[in-house]
Design a protein around this nucleic acid. Structure first.
Lengths: 219, 219
DNA sequence: CGTATGATTTGATACAGATCAAGGACTTCC
DNA sequence: GGAAGTCCTTGATCTGTATCAAATCATACG
């Protein structure tokens, strides 16, 4: 809980609220969704999924060690956390958490900045889903993963992706087949190489960012 | 500024930071984007647009009276506010605003809840852009507008949309032609009626929500 | 009022990505 | 280490929405 940066008094009160959650890979409905929750990933990786009607699911995001997640209560759509590997999570009821954060600046700041980052990422994703081609979306996804869980490597990064092609597809609004085809094309273009199902080596991050449709240098 | 709910001392300090912005309909780049800003809509309506490469723009959202907007500094994509009608706005540098919010619980709470709502809406949009058909997206858009700026009316709502079909399209990831066709179909299905360019009458909100792909009643 | 001008609607065609259908590769578990 | 099962890749076809093109409608202005 050190990562929350909370002071001693807050720490104790947080502990009282805490619901530790150990989750096995593949577990879903990890948290209660009758009330909004704030979840901290202590260890492992999870996905946040939203369900529309007709069984369609959108992976809203992937979260890793030290990430906060705001999981809203069920509304027009249902949200659920789902473990991608064995996890250690800490969950708080959102209202309690926010009340507590009011008396602890560090905690409040932490929460606020995580929230702003979440919003920025969500907007980036909206842009991708609304405007980008399949190729650009896959490139965008890889760039984002490189920044979040990549190990630096030459001009690129080494990735060990904990999620399946289906998860990736559900995250960027494509089918598994399209994701696969785009990966193949990126491989053929010499931008990435892969080994096994989860290992991805980004060979040229700058070029991949170009493919991702990021704004370059000037205004 | 009453809507910020800030106390007297905060109020005075906010005033010192405040940059009032009057904007005419159609004005863009209303705010500085070299630093992140927090903007409050005092009067009018604005859109937040993001630009990817190749001149493509995504309308991240529409904002109305009393809405907060967090406008991030230019990063991988550029964000800009753009007035949909004559506006009265108040802009603060985000870092200053946040620092100030730390010493005023009401302001902090206000900001936090607006941020959570923004995140929820952004996630709803991601779901729509990633999973929904054109028909569902247009229905979703109309439902959302009804909830935010609609005047109750029988089983539905009356809307006076301040944005163009292009704006709508850029918001939900469709072309103007597709938006138009879907509106026509909804009209033919008897769910809405229109008059002029901006007046929309939602005749059956429940049915429209069904079209929008919202989760209905049970689990 | 009529006219100009841009916005919207409608129609025809094209294409990116979905869907359907095998085949091949990695893991896991016995 | 072999078999089974799952996940991933590749290929063929289909479809929803984009694109291109034209007509029609609102709104502003003379």
């Amino acid at each position: 809980m050190a990562s929350l940066g909370a002071n001693e008094a807050t720490h104790l009160r947080l502990q009282a609220l805490t619901r530790y959650v150990g989750a096995r890979s593949g577990d879903s409905r990890v948290t209660d969704n009758s009330a909004s929750q704030v979840v901290l990933v202590v260890e492992g990786a999870v996905k946040l999924i939203a369900s529309a009607s007709a069984g369609r699911t959108q992976v809203m995001g992937f979260y890793f060690k030290d990430d906060f997640i705001y999981v809203p209560a069920r509304e027009t759509h249902a949200y659920n956390l789902c473990a991608l590997k064995d996890c250690e999570l800490v969950a708080f009821p959102a209202t309690e958490f926010i009340r507590l954060a009011q008396s602890d600046k560090t905690l409040n700041n932490n929460f606020l900045s995580h929230l702003l980052r979440a919003l920025s990422r969500c907007r980036e994703k909206s842009l991708a889903l609304g405007q980008k081609t399949a190729r650009e979306r896959v490139a965008t996804f890889l760039v984002s993963m490189a920044e979040r869980i990549g190990a630096p490597f030459s001009n690129g990064a080494l990735l060990d992706l904990p999620m399946s092609r289906r998860d990736i597809g559900d995250n960027i609004g494509l089918t598994i087949e399209t994701v696969s085809r785009q990966m193949t094309e990126l491989r053929n273009a010499g931008l990435v190489s892969t080994s096994g199902r989860s290992q991805v080596k980004i060979l040229d991050l700058a070029a991949l960012k170009q493919e991702a449709g990021h704004l370059s240098g000037l205004s």
